[in-house]
Amino acid sequence: MTTPALWRKSSFSGGGEGNDCVEIANLRPRIAIRDSKDRTRTPLSFPSEAFTAFVTGLKTNGRGETAC
């Protein structure tokens, strides 16, 4: 039996219902990503290390500079 994923939405998901965002779930050793507006679509899945590198790149603008 598998455990359902615990999906989390970004705190930056916007106003209103906050439905204009992506959600992530930690499925060790992978991270799953889905569109919060269409949860029935198949989520994308990445190795945890690749997702961490992606988020770090976003935070540093890919140039080692901290993003706003």
Rank of each mutant, 00 (worst) to 15 (best):
4 P>H: 09
4 P>G: 06
5 A>Y: 06
6 L>H: 12
7 W>H: 08
7 W>I: 05
7 W>Q: 12
8 R>F: 10
8 R>G: 00
11 S>P: 01
12 F>Y: 15
13 S>I: 00
13 S>M: 01
13 S>Y: 00
15 G>K: 05
15 G>H: 07
16 G>P: 08
16 G>Q: 10
17 E>M: 11
17 E>N: 13
18 G>Y: 00
19 N>Y: 00
19 N>D: 06
19 N>A: 12
20 D>C: 01
20 D>V: 00
20 D>K: 00
20 D>E: 09
21 C>M: 01
21 C>K: 01
22 V>H: 01
24 I>T: 13
25 A>P: 14
25 A>T: 01
25 A>C: 05
25 A>K: 11
26 N>G: 04
27 L>V: 13
28 R>W: 10
29 P>M: 09
29 P>F: 12
30 R>D: 15
30 R>M: 11
31 I>T: 12
31 I>M: 14
32 A>C: 06
32 A>G: 10
33 I>G: 03
34 R>G: 05
34 R>H: 09
34 R>L: 07
36 S>T: 02
36 S>G: 09
36 S>R: 06
37 K>T: 02
38 D>E: 12
39 R>Q: 09
39 R>D: 01
41 R>F: 05
42 T>D: 11
42 T>A: 15
43 P>F: 11
43 P>K: 06
44 L>R: 13
44 L>E: 05
45 S>E: 13
45 S>Q: 13
45 S>A: 15
46 F>Y: 15
46 F>C: 07
46 F>T: 09
46 F>E: 03
47 P>S: 12
48 S>F: 08
49 E>H: 07
49 E>F: 01
49 E>K: 08
50 A>K: 15
50 A>T: 15
50 A>M: 03
50 A>P: 01
51 F>Y: 15
51 F>W: 15
53 A>G: 10
54 F>E: 13
54 F>Q: 12
